[in-house]
Amino acid sequence: SFQYVPVQLQGGAPWGFTLKGGLEHCEPLTVSKIEDGGKAALSQKMRTGDELVNINGTPLYGSRQEALILIKGSFRILKLIVRRRN
């Protein structure tokens, strides 16, 4: 089963996490790295392996390109929903 975790990061880029996968690579869009001391790490809500399913209220369909555009369009606040295996 899965758990959906809301994450809100503040203060602008860099957000402190790296993505891998996506439709382009025929795999889920997941968090591959969280930078020590970065905003994602400080939130204590994101983990490597989390799947990104929503950015700023926009549902994602797995495209890494789409996710990067939405993330780049976030100035002060980035709201994410990640899906994690229980």
Rank of each mutant, 00 (worst) to 15 (best):
12 G>V: 03
78 L>R: 01
65 Q>H: 11
16 G>W: 05
83 R>D: 03
27 E>Y: 05
28 P>T: 07
14 P>W: 04
32 S>V: 10
47 R>P: 06
52 L>A: 05
81 I>C: 07
58 T>Y: 10
7 V>G: 00
2 F>T: 09
30 T>K: 08
2 F>Q: 02
37 G>M: 07
71 I>R: 04
42 L>G: 10
17 F>I: 00
79 K>P: 00
6 P>H: 15
41 A>I: 03
73 G>S: 12
31 V>E: 02
25 H>W: 11
46 M>K: 01
36 D>F: 09
83 R>N: 01
9 L>R: 03
9 L>F: 01
18 T>I: 09
23 L>E: 11
49 G>W: 04
21 G>P: 03
51 E>C: 06
31 V>R: 03
37 G>H: 07
2 F>Y: 15
51 E>L: 02
6 P>L: 11
45 K>R: 11
60 L>I: 14
30 T>E: 11
52 L>M: 00
81 I>V: 14
4 Y>T: 08
74 S>L: 04
36 D>A: 13
26 C>T: 10
75 F>Q: 15
56 N>I: 01
67 A>R: 02
74 S>I: 05
51 E>T: 06
83 R>M: 04
40 A>D: 01
24 E>N: 11
38 G>F: 02
1 S>L: 12
14 P>M: 00
29 L>N: 01
85 R>Q: 11
47 R>L: 12
43 S>P: 00
74 S>C: 12
82 V>S: 03
22 G>F: 03
29 L>H: 04
60 L>F: 06
11 G>C: 06
85 R>T: 10
49 G>P: 00
39 K>T: 08
19 L>K: 01
55 I>K: 04
86 N>H: 12
79 K>V: 06
31 V>H: 08
8 Q>L: 13
57 G>C: 10
71 I>D: 01
64 R>K: 13
42 L>P: 05
39 K>D: 00
36 D>S: 12
35 E>H: 10
68 L>C: 11
15 W>T: 00
69 I>E: 15
65 Q>C: 09
56 N>T: 01
12 G>F: 07
62 G>Q: 04
16 G>H: 01
12 G>I: 02
73 G>A: 12
69 I>G: 15
42 L>M: 11
24 E>V: 06
28 P>Q: 06
57 G>H: 00
64 R>C: 09
46 M>P: 07
34 I>Q: 05
42 L>Y: 09
58 T>W: 07
85 R>E: 14
19 L>A: 04
26 C>G: 15
69 I>Y: 13
78 L>M: 10
42 L>D: 13
23 L>T: 14
25 H>Q: 14
68 L>N: 13
8 Q>V: 13
47 R>M: 13
51 E>D: 00
4 Y>K: 06
52 L>H: 01
